[in-house]
Computed example of a mutant assay.
Amino acid sequence: MTDDQLRPDLDDLLDDLYEGQERVTQAEIHRRAVAAELPAELLIRITAMPEGEYAVDEAAELLGGTPA
């Protein structure tokens, strides 16, 4: 899949995750992505993120999405 094909899934995930949150952990991003049954390529990118907390713009930059 290309970045353009993954972007809508990623943008939807980030919108849901960061609603009312300033920072979210890599583990929570991964957990929610698995629960949403997102494509394997996106799960691989999330797994490759260093552990820690991310603001939405940081997560989007690392994963190739558009900040919410």
Results as ranks from 00 to 15, higher is better:
M1A: 10
L42C: 07
L42P: 15
T66P: 07
L13G: 03
I29W: 07
G52R: 02
A27L: 09
Q21V: 05
P39T: 04
E22V: 02
T25S: 15
L63E: 07
P39F: 03
L14K: 06
M1R: 05
R23D: 11
D57I: 05
D4N: 12
L17S: 02
L13K: 03
E37K: 13
E58D: 09
G52H: 11
D15K: 03
A60S: 14
M49I: 10
E28K: 05
A55E: 13
Q21A: 08
D16V: 13
L10G: 04
D16I: 02
A60N: 03
I46E: 12
E41C: 01
D9H: 01
E22P: 00
L63C: 06
L43C: 11
R31L: 09
L17Q: 06
L42E: 06
D3F: 10
L13I: 14
P39G: 01
L38H: 01
R31A: 15
V24R: 07
A55K: 04
L43V: 13
E37L: 03
E22G: 03
L14H: 04
E37P: 08
M1F: 12
I44K: 00
D11C: 10
I46G: 05
Q21K: 06
T25I: 13
E58K: 02
A48D: 13
D57K: 00
A35T: 15
L6V: 08
M49P: 04
A36Y: 12
V56D: 07
L62P: 02
Q5I: 06
G52I: 12
L42M: 12
Q5W: 05
R32H: 00
G64A: 03
D57N: 06
Q21G: 07
V56Q: 06
P8Q: 00
L42T: 12
A27Y: 15
P67R: 02
P50N: 05
R45E: 12
